[in-house]
Design a protein around this nucleic acid. Structure first.
Length: 226
DNA sequence: CCAGACGTTGTT
DNA sequence: GTCTGG
DNA sequence: CCAGACGTTGTT
DNA sequence: GTCTGG
């Protein structure tokens, strides 16, 4: 889960909501897919929270081949603290991935065939942003280029998501941002306990057009209820 | 000890 | 780099 | 995540 | 079935 999402800003509200000191340029996007550039929020010593563009698809430091990043879009909350691919990132390189919402596909049986119905999930009420829990890794390519990548941590579904899909991204509340982002937070057990499904009251979901299923499609109208 | 893998999702 | 399997 | 491609040889 | 591209 969480293989497609939305970040349209506006950037001024993004900076405000996440209390960013600096933020990279970001063009509104309504169909962000793995392997593309995404905006992450990290905590820099002496500077504070900054927004930075990185590639979605985690390439661990030790990887000899960047191809592993094609598979690591998500990390399971249940095992992220132990898996070799994620362990050191979980201990020292946590980030937030800001989103206005994300998509999930629901398998629907129709006349003996399975159709994939896309849903859009956004904050309930007048909330503007969700904060997905993510990891970062810095990798040096054989050519010597520094490549920073990210992935989204997933967990079991809450009551809103359960009818739609078996997984959902871990969503953190503003009160958790500081401790999650602080590289000095080394209490892995305490951090791991935060990786739980969001309360039902925090999100709402509605059906959208299957046009979102093709990652080439873009635009605000992908959010229209269908 | 060394060698080899290192992951998630969804579907069957 | 670190863990698992042999 | 889903959609769409998935190949070689020899010639230009 | 599996990999790549978006």
């Amino acid at each position: 889960m969480c293989g497609r999402y939305v970040l349209h800003g506006p950037q001024s509200r993004l900076r405000e909501h996440f209390d960013l000191r600096e933020c990279a340029e970001w063009q509104a996007r309504y169909n962000i897919a793995p392997q593309s550039e995404v905006l992450v929020i990290r905590q820099r010593p002496e500077l504070g929270r900054v927004g930075q563009r990185v590639r979605w698809g985690l390439i661990p430091r030790w990887a000899k081949d960047a191809a592993i990043g094609l598979k690591l879009n998500n990390a399971r909350a249940e095992t992220v603290a132990e898996k070799p691919s994620f362990k050191s990132s979980f201990e020292r390189h946590r980030c937030l991935i800001p989103a206005n919402g994300f998509y999930e596909w629901q398998a629907v049986e129709e006349g003996g065939k399975t159709r994939k119905q896309p849903w859009y999930i956004r904050p309930a009420g007048d909330g503007e942003f969700l904060a997905m829990a993510g990891l970062l890794a810095a990798w040096k390519s054989p050519a010597g280029a520094d490549v920073v990548t990210t992935c989204v941590i997933t967990t079991t579904p809450n009551g809103v998501m359960a009818p739609i899909h078996e997984r959902m991204p871990v969503l953190l509340a503003p009160g958790q941002f500081d401790a999650w982002l602080d590289p000095a937070s080394r209490d892995v057990e305490a951090l791991r306990r935060w990786l739980r499904p969001a309360p039902d009251a925090e999100i709402t979901a509605y059906r959208v057009s299957s046009r979102v299923s093709n990652a080439r499609n873009e635009g605000e109208d992908l959010l229209a209820p269908a």
